[in-house]
Design a protein around this nucleic acid. Sequence first.
DNA 1: CAGTCTACCTGGCGGC
DNA 2: TGCCGCCAGGTAGACT
Length: 467
Amino acid sequence: MPELPEVETVRKSLLNHILNRKIISIDILYPNMIKTDINNFKPSLENAKVIDIQRIGKFLIFIFDNNKVLISHLRMEGKYYYYNENEKNSSHARIVFHLDNNEKMIYDDTRKFGIMEVHNLNDYKNAECLAKLGKEPFDADENYLFNKIHHLKCDIKTAILDQTILTGIGNIYADETLFASKINPFRKANSITLEECKKIIINSRNILNKAILEGGSTVSSYHPENGVDGKFQLLLNAYGRNNLPCKVCSCTMHKGYIGGRGTVYCPHCQNVCLSIGIYGKIASGKSEALKYCSSLGYKVFSCDECVNKLYTLLETKKFVINLFGEASLTPLGGIDKHYIKNQISSSIELKTKLENYLYPLIKEEIKKFINENKEEKLIFIEVPLMFESKFNTLVDYIIGIDASYPTQIKNLLSRGSKTPDLDLKLNQNNQFDKYASKCDYLIHNNSSLEDFHHKLNQVINKILLMR
DNA sequence: CAGTCTACCTGGCGGC
DNA sequence: TGCCGCCAGGTAGACT
Ligand SMILES: [Zn+2]
C-alpha cells in the first residue's frame, strides 16, 4: 500500500528507531520473500550495524557498516514494528531483526507481497529492481516524461503508475495527480501533450511533498508504525471519494477501473465520459429514445442488437441448439427468436439457462463499449432489464421511461403485435414500478413524439451540466 | 516488442 | 450465522 510519501514516512521512523543499532540475530519466518540467496541473508546482516537508511521510489535501502545493503519493498501491506524482546511477535511477522537494545524490529506483512534483497554497497544500485526504475517526479521534467510516454498506447494512468517511467507514484497519488492536472485518466498516453506532462510533473511533486509533510496517507487501518497515522488522507481530492462531491466543481465523483485498479475522477473537471443507461417499461419508447440520442450524435448501445449479434456467432448457435434442439433454427440456419421466445415463456428452467449464458456476454460487451468510449461526452446504453439483471452498476446514471397504458398499446401495435393486451400481461420480467425510484431521471412518454424528444433533451442537458 | 491478463496472499466488508 | 464474491496504497511473469 505505501507509495512514496508513506515509504518516506517509514524511512524517517526507522531512522529514529534503529540508526546505529546492531542486528544481533534474525528470524526468517517467511523465507519466500527473500529474493537474493537466502543462505547469504543472515550471514550478511547479523552483527552488522545500521549506518544509514535511504529511499529510492518505494524502496527502502538499509546501509550497514559491513558494506552490505538491505533493499526492502513493502508492496501492499509491508510495515515495520518495533517491539520489546519480551513481547510476542505481531500476527503477520515475516522477518524479525533482534537488535542490541533489547528490542526487535519486526517486518510484518499480511499479504506476503513484500520482498527483501541483500547486496553489496558498491553495486547495489545495479540490482535489477533498482536499475530499471525511472526518475522520481522530483528529478524529472516534462521533456523526460513526454519522451517516455509519447509513443505508448496505454492509458495515461497506467503510464504514470509504471515505475520504470516515474517511480514513487501509486494508485492514490496517480488519481490525485490526474485530478489536479484536470486530465482524463482514460486518455491514451500518446495523446498527452508536453504541456500536460508539465502539469503532471508539477502536480505530482506538489502532492507528494504535501503528503510527506503530513506523514503520508493512512487508509483502511494501515499504520506505518504502531499507533502512528498519516494525515494526508484527509486532504485527498480524488482517491476514496467515489460518489462524493468534487471539491472543485461539486459534481459527483465517479469510479471506474484502469488496469484493474480502482480509479476515481471528476467527470466534469477531467472530461470523462458519462454512461447513461436507458431503462423503462415494455414498449415505453426505450428504442425510440436510443434512436433519438443517436441522431443527436451520441454513441449508443442496444442490448437487443447485441443479442442479435451474439445469435450470429457459431458458439451461441451451438449453445442454443444444445438447449432448444434443431427446431430453434430457421430454414436458413439462423436462430429463430420467436421460437425461443415461446420456449422460454413456458419453461423457467430454459429461460434461466439461456439468460445465464447470454447476460455475462452482454455485460462484457457493454463494458467494452464503455471503455472504448471514455473520451466521448455522453454515451447511451439501452438495457430492458437494467435492475432485474443487475446491469445498473455498469452505468453512471439511469433514465427511466414510464409510459401510459395507451402509449404502450400504441407502441406494441405499431411494431406489429396482434395481441398487445396479452403481450403486456404476459410480460412479467420487467418490474419497472418496483425500480422506478432507483432511476436518476424519470420521463413520462404519454404525449407526442415531439414532447418525448423535448423531455429527453431536458434530461440530457441536465446531465451535460455535470460533466 | 508492447499491451493485457493473472498470479501472488490475506482479511474485511456487503449481500444473501 | 455462515458463506461467497469482491475489493485492497503493488508488481512480476506469462501470455497474444
Ligand atoms: Zn470537478
